[in-house]
């Protein structure tokens, strides 16, 4: 892998101008970084096709014969359920965050009154708040509501803790929408809800997509709530489910590694393909928070 890419990259450079010593050193450093990052990821995929014995005794070598059965075992012994749960939780969280945050963003950007500023304070404060602080009381609230150990026990807190950031992101986008558009709609007799649904939501599709992608990143990977608020194996999402999976398999490293690939690869491909939105979202989210 490494040997295949290095000469190609170097040849690109040589065509243009001679390399300075510093550049060569830097480039070698980058390559070392590349190996440190890429090799472990490659190793997971490679080892997921080996037998347990090969994984522990011949850690560097390629599988003698690729053992696709590991993937079948992983999928059958739980990963499929975790995958489905993660999908349900992620999609519900996205819908919840987008709807509630865009409604609030609209309310807070179009109606400037004293109370809208008052409402902004807890929203901004919510962004600073570390979710762990709420762990114990939240656990009891979810228990009392009777939704602990259901998928709702994840969906609802996920939405609540994502709301501040996305409300602010969406609101700032709404603030930039020219007032004239809204006023001409008002002339036509549109209500606030109609303006929201007909004008603002379609116009802000890029920021909503960004929000959705960022939320999916969070919901797909969240670990602590998923570990604590869910007792049953059948409601586990992938991050917490993998822990159960590790303990359940005991000796079988192959299927565990296959499970890791199944839970990481599709979502990585998805994020890389929407990289543009994703990076924009990270930036928007971080500057605000």
């Amino acid at each position: 892998m490494r040997t295949a890419i290095l000469p190609v990259l170097l040849s690109h450079r040589r065509v243009r101008n001679p390399l300075s010593a510093a550049q060569v050193v830097l480039f070698l450093c980058l390559c070392i970084g590349f190996v440190m990052i890429a090799y472990p990821m490659f190793w997971i995929i490679m080892s997921s096709l080996k037998t347990s014995r090969e994984i522990t005794t011949e850690i560097w070598s390629l599988p003698t014969t690729p053992l696709w059965r590991n993937y079948v075992i992983a999928w059958r012994s739980g990963i499929s359920q975790y995958f489905l749960n993660s999908m349900i939780v992620t999609i519900s969280t996205i819908l919840g965050v987008i709807v509630v945050a865009s409604l609030a963003g609209y309310g807070l950007s179009r109606y400037r009154m004293l109370w809208t500023n008052l409402v902004l304070i807890p929203i901004m404060g919510g962004m600073m708040l570390n979710p762990q602080v709420c762990l114990i009381p939240l656990y009891r609230i979810l228990t009392n509501l009777g939704i602990r150990n259901t998928l709702l026990a994840l969906i609802v807190p996920y939405i609540a803790f994502r709301l501040p950031m996305h409300t602010l992101i969406i609101r700032s986008f709404f603030l930039a929408i020219p007032r004239e558009i809204e006023e001409s709609a008002l002339m036509d007799g549109c209500t606030g809800f109609q303006i929201y649904g007909h004008i603002f939501v379609p116009m802000s599709r890029p920021i909503l997509v960004t929000s959705a992608i960022l939320t999916s990143y969070y919901a797909w990977n969240e670990f602590m709530f998923a570990l604590i608020f869910i007792d049953s194996n059948r409601y586990r999402t992938i991050p917490a489910g993998l822990m159960n999976f590790r303990d359940a398999l005991q000796v079988d490293y192959g299927p565990l590694l296959a499970g890791m690939v199944i839970s990481a690869l599709p979502i990585m491909i998805f994020f890389i393909s929407v990289q543009k939105y994703f990076v924009r979202g990270l930036l928007a989210g971080s500057v605000k928070g």
Partner: peptide
């Protein structure tokens, strides 16, 4: 179009 957002909420 209040209906629309209401429908979305309802679906959710």
């Amino acid at each position: 179009m209040a209906k629309r957002s209401a429908t979305v909420l309802l679906l959710l």
